[in-house]
Amino acid sequence: MAELSLIEALRAGIDESMAADERVFVFGEDVGKRGGVFRVTEGLQAKYGPWRVIDSPLAEGVIVGACTGAAMSGMRPIAEIQFADFIWPAMNQIVSETARIAYRSNGDWNVPLVIRAPYGGGIHGALYHSQSVEAFFAHVPGLKVVVPATPYDVKGLIKSAIADPDPVMFFEHKKTYRLIKGEVPDGDYSVPIGKADIKREGDDLTVITYGLMLHYALEAAEQLAQTDGLNIEVLDLRTVRPLDTEMIFNSVRKTGKVLIVHEDNLTGGIGGELAALIAEHAFEYLDGPIMRLAGPDVPAMPFAATLEEAFMPSPERIAAKIRELAAY
């Protein structure tokens, strides 16, 4: 057991998977010699050679398309998109091909591909380096969408994603890379895809969140426990498709009040889907309106620090929203 940053845990997970399975390789921009712009794959090319950690051209469509073909041919590729913001040229491959191969071939073919991408703001990255893109992919049947938030979960989930027989979108919040540290067991373990996790137990209200917002929600919950005596449950989705409806409904049945927090903008976000599911399946347990706190519906993350701050849900804003709902 060692305390690792999220990026170290992610690297350890990829490293162990590559050591254990020769079919696993990494394909992406600057992933080889440079070790990736965030250094996720640092040292891996030196360790496994240039044919298992491959620098790609600046063409995301190629990265995903080539990896999809490799996966269909029996490999276990990890495609790295340098920033989630750059994923759009690969959109046609991902949605029209990668996600549908198994369906189209009636299960004769499958695509065991992991598409990794750093997402999210709060790092002064502005329009092209701050987007949250998970909701676009969560809309697509045939894809699994994972958004881990802790070192333990990121290592366990990358292993599950690599082992998964179907395509997995794997989004890492870039602000958590070095900010978030935690205990990570040495050696092999995995965290199942599609399972949420109660990161903090409580009975007054459930905050459902994922990614960086998990940490902000936990901070808000701790603060409110001190100042307001509120006992907030914080549910980390970890996977936004498929959603762990059992754990979500159980938590709602316990607390009766739900606040959904995500950094992605409000309209059409994961929160809307969660709210609909809860209203449909746990209606009789609701003791207040299902509330959402999300990024605003503006075209992109602004560059000015003040405006970026205004965009990002913060622990203070989460706490204020919790207070509002708790008092209902």
């Binding site: 009766g256 009789e284 347990y285």
Partner: peptide, 15 residues
Amino acid sequence: GGPANKAPISPAVAR
């Protein structure tokens, strides 16, 4: 003779 509390009754409370 009607209800005194005009505030809405949530589904959880009704149940």
